[in-house]
Design a protein around this nucleic acid. Structure first.
Lengths: 249, 249
DNA sequence: AACGCCGCTTGACCTAGGTCAGAGCCAAAC
DNA sequence: GTTTGGCTCTGACCTAGGTCAAGCGGCGTT
């Protein structure tokens, strides 16, 4: 465990006008929009949003055990969540890209059950959860959206669960990442890994040496091209094929 | 994959009076009660409940891909949920004891993402989800309860996720089972496994042979006494100790 | 430019647990 | 009772991936 990283810097709180404008690009709201929210409903949502960050790489966003009061949508950057087991080893629980929501698993115990750390420069939209659920009683669409969001994450967790081979896990990881980037309008075939090999290893429950070896072999077999953290998927079909067992689709 | 099992038999639908009385023991309602619901609110909840079953052992409750419209609380018996991977191997996702809620991960896609099967004679309380979430807009306590329930299940899924040894997994499984039985008023130290060894193996991502061997060794070491499916935990302390890494407490 | 650090790679070896095969054993059916 | 059939157990072997140890290289620092 490294100590805290660079000191936390926050942007000056934007005034409400700004918040609404600024946030109109934020994924959570846009998801709500696409759920058929009208403008006035959306602005109700916006008054309880707060922009936080930027967080510098290595800076913690919250820590295990912190009291929970807000969920957050990633606006920019990548967030890693992890816990440290009793042997001092890091178990990575997930990576969150722009548009994805952190903290949903904290509602239950009213405490964050894991640490969240910025992998690069991260900015967030923070939603007060008490206010949000209050608002959800008046906006059934919002309630619905929250239920779906939560339900979705239950299934997502079992991606890691099965007993899959290293190849299957790695392929699934890359394909999932690719799809998530593509869904946000980035290239799905050529992107940068924002996380270290060891992070990937801890996430996939492999040794970092295995991650290296598998990536090497994938490259030798012409499935992809990887240099440092820059990946290019060359044979998407075969990767999808390998990932199918894990992703179930 | 076996074919359907014995034909599905249902109890004649109970009239509303009955339902309220009958269901007052059901875990979901009692959880709501303990959330500070008053009698009249509870009865609102009860009108949208439907008792189903009994399901005979081996009978399916729902199947992967079935359209989702209701969550269900187990009243009696044990339910196993599982999927079948492309190699035809069964991946057990969970076991649900009386008082536990099935189907929460189906909200997202509006379809059940797994099969659910009765391991012994099972009865359920079925809650129409659309009606329930509608009601939740008027009863903030219910909404809160649902959020918590969903949030809880997100974390639960990662019990399997870590890279743990067979011993740790097995110990964690037994301790978790013990706690869940104890929480329902049954003995936490002496209970019956309602599932086969192969089910446990598929759940813990081990081979059934490994499950056998580990249980054998646990018995030899005086940790427990197991005969057929009857377990008695003898050295709870050491089991808890082994399980700690997995259960994180 | 030289240094040092950290993340990454590669090779050699080892072990936890999977796989295969066969045998016991309880329970329901005949 | 005998049979049948599904679980369960046990032993012998094997392999995927972890561990250990040692180089390598890019990058920021001085």
């Amino acid at each position: 465990m490294k100590t805290g990283g660079p000191a936390r810097k926050r942007m000056p709180p934007a005034d409400d006008e700004d918040a609404v404008k600024f946030c109109s690009t934020c994924a959570f709201s846009s998801a709500c929009l696409s759920q058929g929210f009208d403008k006035s409903q959306l602005s109700e949502l916006h008054v309880l949003v707060m922009h936080v960050g930027p967080f510098a790489p290595g800076e913690h966003i919250f820590r295990e055990g912190d009291p929970f009061n807000a969920i957050a949508a990633v606006r920019a950057g990548t967030v890693k969540t992890y816990v440290v087991d009793s042997h001092g080893r890091e178990q990575v629980q997930g990576f969150f890209l722009p548009g994805e929501v952190i903290g949903l698993n904290a509602i239950h115990a009213a405490r964050y059950p894991a640490n969240a750390i910025a992998l690069d420069t991260v900015t967030l939209c923070r939603f007060s959860f008490p206010q949000m659920s209050l608002l959800a009683t008046r906006l059934p669409g919002l309630q619905q959206h929250l239920f779906r969001l939560l339900s979705h994450d239950i299934g997502k967790a079992s991606l890691l669960a099965g007993d899959f081979t290293a190849d299957e896990r790695m392929a699934a990881f890359l394909i999932a990442l690719s799809r998530r980037y593509a869904a946000r309008g980035y290239s799905g075939s050529h992107f940068n890994l924002t996380m270290a090999r060891t992070d990937i290893a801890n996430y996939l429950r492999l040794a970092s040496e295995t991650v290296s070896r598998v990536l090497r072999r994938f490259q030798d077999e012409g499935l992809l091209c990887i240099e440092r953290r820059e990946v290019q998927l060359l044979d998407r079909m075969r990767l999808e094929q390998m990932a199918r067992v894990v992703l179930r689709d």
